[in-house]
């Protein structure tokens, strides 16, 4: 057998606008418009079938493509739930110049911004909305016996007039209980030394916590010697994350066995009038420290007077 190339060949990255891709088996035609994104296993193009826009993923790795098709197929079998994009067609394409066959599949085109862009455009108050939506979807996915795996802002598209988050790249989606197929280091609990790579709901929930981190630290950061301690610092030093500290830690430590639990806790945390509570706490502290405060006040006034007097003297001498 030949050496496989891990990265998509250049020819697939540069399919020109206007190229028509015809399937070898089903004979459907797709006109390439522009590339939408490039992953480790292939390139996704925006294409047109007749008048309808579709997303077409093409790759020189039939193997991984077929396992993605498998996942998409299962998704579309679940009626009434829009998790991933709908699968429309699977076929082979004979490259006219290379005389080589590439596998491709066609799915529904989901128009929108990726999560990071969306939050940057619309504001931080959307973070929690999206996270709650996401947890709802994950719960359904987990109940059907799947774990998403490669959960990250790049794989989440927010679309529609009423913004709704959609999961797009299903390359990492794994049957519960197996080994996670694909992951991204920053969002992977194995990388942080905080758990296994077994496909279980808690694996996705770790990633959800890391997505919240990523929203607050858009540049991400690299792991240092003690990953856990590093995360602790990053959470406690950011006001937004600090608010959800307890929940984040439960998710990071794998204490949530189901997405609904985490969702419930987040909702509860939001409903708590945290600001008022803080104010009240602040007041009691002030009462306790009143005596000390008075002393400080007197000293402060004294120093001020002294300073003004010095300035006065200085002006007089001049």
């Amino acid at each position: 057998m030949t050496v496989m190339t891990m990265y998509t060949s250049n020819n697939l990255c540069n399919i020109r606008t206007g190229t028509v891709i015809q399937g070898k088996w089903h004979k459907r035609h797709y006109e390439i418009i522009k590339p939408l994104g490039k992953g480790a296993n292939g390139v996704v193009y925006l294409a047109k079938e007749g008048r309808a826009f579709v997303a077409l993923k093409i790759s020189n790795e039939a193997t991984t493509m077929m396992s993605e098709v498998n996942v998409l197929k299962r998704f579309s079998e679940v009626q009434g739930i829009t998790l991933g994009p709908c699968l429309l067609d699977v076929d082979d394409w004979l490259h006219p110049h290379e005389k080589k066959i590439y596998s491709f599949y066609v799915m529904e085109y989901i128009e929108g911004d990726d999560l990071l862009t969306f939050i940057q455009k619309r504001g931080k108050e959307w973070i929690i909305v999206i996270i709650l939506q996401l947890l709802g979807d994950l719960h359904k996915l987990h109940e059907k016996g799947w774990v998403f795996g490669d959960l990250k802002p790049d794989n989440l598209i927010v679309s529609g007039a009423v913004p709704k988050v959609r999961l797009i790249d299903v390359g990492g989606t794994t049957i519960r209980g197996r080994a996670i197929k694909e992951f991204t280091e920053f969002f992977d609990r194995g990388y942080w030394g905080m758990g296994t790579r077994k496909a279980e709901p808690s694996y996705d929930l770790f990633a959800v916590a890391m997505i919240m981190m990523n929203m607050c630290y858009p540049k991400r950061f690299e792991r240092k010697e003690n990953g856990r301690e590093q995360l602790r610092l990053m959470i406690s030093s950011h006001p937004y994350l600090k608010k959800y500290e307890k929940i984040l830690w439960r998710a990071l430590d794998g204490k949530y066995t189901c997405a609904h639990e985490m969702r419930k806790d987040l909702l509860q945390c939001m409903q708590q009038p945290t600001e008022q509570k803080e104010k009240r706490e602040g007041r009691t502290v002030r009462v306790k420290g009143k005596k000390k405060f008075r002393l400080l006040e007197t000293m402060f006034l004294f120093v001020c007077l002294l300073f003004m007097y010095v300035v006065y003297l200085y002006v007089q001498i001049l």
């Binding site: 193997t63 396992s67 498998n70 076929d91």
Partner: peptide
Amino acid sequence: SIEHLSPEKRVEVMEVVEELGE
């Protein structure tokens, strides 16, 4: 060979390969 199967059949074969890999 796997490449000569129709996409539908290939998907099924790949499911077996994946199962074995696990």
